[in-house]
Design a protein around this nucleic acid. Sequence first.
DNA 1: CTGTTAGCGCCTTCAG
DNA 2: CTGAAGGCGCTAACAG
Lengths: 332, 332
Amino acid sequence: MSITIKDVAREANVSVATVSRALNGHENVAPDVRQRVLEVADRLQYSPHHAARSLSSRRTQTIGVVLPDLHGEFFSELMRGIDAVAREAGRHLLVSSYHGNPDEQGAALRAMRGRVDGLLLMSPFVADADPLAGQALGMPAVLLNSGARAGIAALDIDSYQGARAMTRHLLATGHRRIAFIAGPDDNFDAHERLRGYRDELATAGAGMPWIVEGDFDEASGHAAGRLLLEARERPDAVFAANDMMALGCLFAFNQADVRVPAHIALAGFDDIPLARYVHPGLTTMRVDIAALGGRALRALLARLADPESPITTERLAVELVVRESCGTPRAV
Amino acid sequence: MSITIKDVAREANVSVATVSRALNGHENVAPDVRQRVLEVADRLQYSPHHAARSLSSRRTQTIGVVLPDLHGEFFSELMRGIDAVAREAGRHLLVSSYHGNPDEQGAALRAMRGRVDGLLLMSPFVADADPLAGQALGMPAVLLNSGARAGIAALDIDSYQGARAMTRHLLATGHRRIAFIAGPDDNFDAHERLRGYRDELATAGAGMPWIVEGDFDEASGHAAGRLLLEARERPDAVFAANDMMALGCLFAFNQADVRVPAHIALAGFDDIPLARYVHPGLTTMRVDIAALGGRALRALLARLADPESPITTERLAVELVVRESCGTPRAV
DNA sequence: CTGTTAGCGCCTTCAG
DNA sequence: CTGAAGGCGCTAACAG
């Protein structure tokens, strides 16, 4: 078996209590004793048994991260942001994905008990199907990009303002017939982006919304693009709720020899790496996903440090990135 | 405090031992008693405290994953493969990255003690700087893409054979002056790919190797591309040790109006998603990274299940993907 | 089949 | 400042 606190105690001629105190940096230990204990611990390559420590101290130094999935650019970036902060704070990460399955999500959440001090949770289902409804998390948590829920801190991408800004940009660059390729019906961001598009159009008094269905993946964007080309009167701009659909749409336009931006303008949302590589470069809204993860974890750690601190709901601003796919402004 | 096994025991009128047995699916429990226990546990929303369980059972149901980084396509794919198998096997994942810093790696490894049953470790440093040298992991582990070490199971991408195959392909398509953009000097894959390039050239008796430095990122590929264009006699093909560098190189060629593959052929390694989107499509070696992660975890689980099973070293085959960047074969 | 009883390794009062 | 002792919640013999 591995070496325990007892071994260190024996070797250093002190009690386990003293070893514990010395190692945990408590003040009430004589300097020379502390010195000796640290040396012995180091020599023996002692490393405290986590389960034992957390059983008695009731803290795990671990944060649970429960996500819909782990695959792809988005989650990779998110994890990077979370990881950087976790490392800085000396926290470990227990990662779990539930593959969009609410039952699995429940299981994942339950399995976190006694293993983590707090939770970072992404649950982008709209309220109707909310698997969190009434679910007692039983520990401090921050909701990631999932909309606000009563009693839980939340940090969201400001999809609504982003979509308004993009719609405004399209209007400002002289476009009037702006079609929107929507995201999945049950997704929070998709809702917000659609809402932003609608509201901005209404505010500007710029005609009726024109909405085509999509589900955030490339194929649906491609299909939507084809559909739009078949319209008697084509749109002069297309705003896709995310970049992947915008790219699919671009592909459809290319196939039909419809030029972007000459014949039709195109805009996306997310600023994925591909957006700058395609031709023409895609105008889009930049979302700093790593910052989303990092800030969420910071918020969680703040609550862990002070459970009395208020439960907050924040929104992460997004930034318009103008590339070639929308042409240049004609008028403002 | 949260509800414990004692609460369930009291409520079900049995001892804690019986509750434990019933919940863990042991056979020696009367059907009706088991039924009652399960009901009570469910009603009370009981969920075992992990730390306590693992302290007494000496098993954590958790696998430690220690990687150089979490950022980017490669690690995202790797995690996807690992996650799928972990989920299938009911294991949790404790993830840690050490940012290429050997000290942090040591710390991460040490911190895994008492928290995980086994380790998946990626340590792509060449032997000289090997932070693992003499390090007793103290538990079953599988090395990922880090080369073989005595006494530890390992699973590698077959970079060597892949590089040979690519070099062979370039020769077979009629190229003679093949330059190679190398990866970081201290990286295992980079070494293997360079070695494969050299050996194949030597075997074919096809002239001297022509090696340009790089470090796996796009910028270094771009610099290498410019350097190659300045040569008195340009190469007729460039083989980059990974796709990111190949893309950087392609960018440099585009800027200089050098056509691929008409003026110069280009090949990469990894088959990242971008490889198929650029123009011309990049000829590359496909590496199934998710499979790498999945198989590594399976190997680890096998050893966990049977510690007597032999320590193996496997190599994951890679596959040549021919796109437009190398032209078509002239002769074989 | 079921209950009793030791720990697992560590932290934390409580006395010295 | 230090040691002894009692848990933390659960599992695993060992008796019934």
